[in-house]
């Protein structure tokens, strides 16, 4: 299969990636760029574990072909922390006890980041609605919602 070259911005840096055209954005990020914080849970856009911030919006990277990402601005969890230190949302997740097995957490945090970029002071209802596309099987969501609210209160 002839490879294509995808040019985009990943975690604030321009990248160009040679990749088979049948690969997904998820594969490009995990395999080609080694950004393994992006998780694959269901492969069909249901669980939200592979969420990345894509041109400012939280999207499931399993449902986007790598080639579609030409020119896109993409942020993964690796691009959120600052010099290996947690940012305000990550810190709030830690303090709130929102993290158990952790597999859904990259997607959760990125969805929260995307929400707070647009709406720094969301209501609890807005938080619940924004987070509704991300499944967690451990926590029962309450502490995740509290973590987002805590992060918002510190912004």
């Amino acid at each position: 299969m002839n490879k294509i070259t995808v040019h985009c911005t990943v975690n604030h840096k321009p990248v160009s990636v040679e990749i088979e055209p049948n690969k997904r954005l998820l594969d490009m990020l995990r395999v080609n760029l080694g950004l393994t914080s992006v998780k694959e849970g269901c492969s069909e856009g249901e669980c939200g574990a592979c969420t990345v911030i894509y041109n400012g919006e939280p999207v499931t990277s399993c449902c986007i072909l790598a080639g579609q990402a030409e020119g896109a601005d993409i942020i993964t969890l690796e691009g959120v922390s600052v010099d290996g230190k947690p940012d305000v949302v990550q810190q709030a997740f830690i303090e709130s006890g929102a993290i158990q097995c952790g597999f859904c957490i990259p997607g959760m945090i990125l969805t929260a980041e995307a929400l707070l970029m647009k709406n720094p002071h969301p209501t609890m209802e807005q938080i619940k609605e924004a987070m509704s596309g991300n499944l967690c099987r451990c926590t029962g969501y309450k502490k995740i919602e509290e973590a987002v609210a805590l992060a918002a209160s510190r912004m």
Partner: peptide
Amino acid sequence: TEFPKVDALERALGTAKYAADYF
């Protein structure tokens, strides 16, 4: 008393390695 989960930091940063993350 409250303690942060012992490995919460690496999970929040996305650096924790799950089985599929090994190459």
